[in-house]
């Protein structure tokens, strides 16, 4: 990607986010159910309800509401949560690191597992055992992440209670952190016992997110490796006296990596979206879990803030993928 292309992409971000904001804002208000209905105590009079609606500005026309809200957003004020009575920005910022750490761990596990599966698959290429790898990948791919969450929870949390099944860290532990990146912070400050406790809590949700994505990575990488191995330059390397492992590593892998990052990277948005349900299942305190609460409470400002946050993450991910692909493929650098 050339600089012009990068700038073009950056320029496109604000209109994209604006579009997302409009859609979410309008949809929330068109769909039946509003936050007031969720918060009024039994026996509230219609007058109370009207007063509350006016207090939150929900009695105004949607366009008017949007202009007010968007004006605040432009000034960095994302409003206050109706159900939690705190600033949306602060709430999201406090929970975002938990989700980012979980997603990153899941991504690492997925790439690791996918890499191993793809390498075993390509090693067995053309032999009868190759079948097994393909079937394994197919099974992992067929079961969605939230189902894996339930399976893992029952298997390793209940039947064989090896791992904790809820939360980010034991509530009894009294540990203070300077940031909300608990895992990163504990690793950087050398508190490995804390990191270990955190990882124990993260491993099941991370695995649930990682398994389908690992299968996806494995399938794309294995196909790309096979394709690249059949290319002339790889065949000719054999005639130059290089062994198959040498050729796979040096000639084939760098080429197979390009489609794998391009396709797999975009699919990583699925993994990010998967955090919503998986965090809920494991009571993990990230923004995905928060999003479900926000929806249940019809907490309009919080939902809007969370959706925008996910939108920013998706855009950033796509941009990062394109940049990495450009780094991997010299043919793209010159346009």
């Amino acid at each position: 990607m050339r600089w012009g292309e990068i700038i073009r992409r950056l320029v496109l971000i604000p209109p994209t986010l604006f579009g997302v904001a409009v859609i979410v804002f309008v949809l929330l208000r068109v769909v039946p159910g509003d936050p007031i209905a969720m918060m009024i105590p039994p026996g509230a009079t219609p007058a109370d309800i009207t007063r509350l609606r006016a207090f939150y500005g929900l009695d105004q026309p949607i366009l008017q509401q949007f202009v007010t809200w968007f004006g605040q957003v432009l000034n960095g004020d994302f409003g206050r949560s109706i159900s939690v009575h705190q600033g949306v920005f602060e709430l999201v910022l406090a929970r975002l690191p938990a989700t980012l750490e979980l997603a990153l761990l899941a991504l690492l596990i997925a790439v690791g597992l996918g890499l191993i599966a793809a390498l075993i698959g390509i090693h067995l290429r053309g032999r009868r055992m190759e079948w097994l790898v393909d079937i394994g990948i197919g099974v992992l791919l067929a079961v969605p992440d939230f189902l894996w969450a339930l399976i893992l929870l029952l298997l390793l949390g209940v039947l064989i209670p090896l791992l904790p099944i809820s939360g980010r860290i034991d509530p009894q532990l009294d540990i203070s952190f300077h940031s909300n990146f608990y895992l990163v912070e504990s690793l950087l400050t050398g508190r490995f016992d804390v990191a270990d406790a955190l990882l124990h809590h993260m491993i099941l949700p991370a695995l649930a997110l990682a398994l389908p994505f690992a299968a996806l990575v494995a399938r794309i990488l294995k196909t790309s490796l096979a394709e690249a191995e059949d290319q002339d330059y790889a065949q000719i390397a054999r005639a130059r006296g290089f062994s198959r492992p040498e050729i796979l590593l040096r000639e084939v892998f760098p080429n197979a990596l390009i489609p794998t990052v391009a396709l797999g990277g975009v699919q990583a948005t699925l993994l990010l979206g998967g955090t919503v349900l998986v965090e809920r299942i494991f009571s993990y305190e990230g923004i995905g879990n928060m999003a479900i609460d926000a929806v249940i409470n019809r907490d309009f400002p919080l939902i809007q803030g969370l959706v925008l946050t996910f939108a920013v993450l998706f855009i950033a991910l796509n941009l990062a993928v394109d940049l990495v692909v450009t780094l991997l493929d010299p043919r793209l650098r010159h346009g």
């Binding site: 290319q231 002339d232 330059y233 790889a234 000719i236 000639e251 760098p254 080429n255 390009i258 991997l328 493929d329 010299p330 043919r331």
Partner: peptide, 12 residues
């Protein structure tokens, strides 16, 4: 080799 267009590794 026969085809110079495909016989060199494109990313190296």
């Amino acid at each position: 080799p026969q085809d110079p267009m495909t016989s060199l590794n494109p990313v190296k």
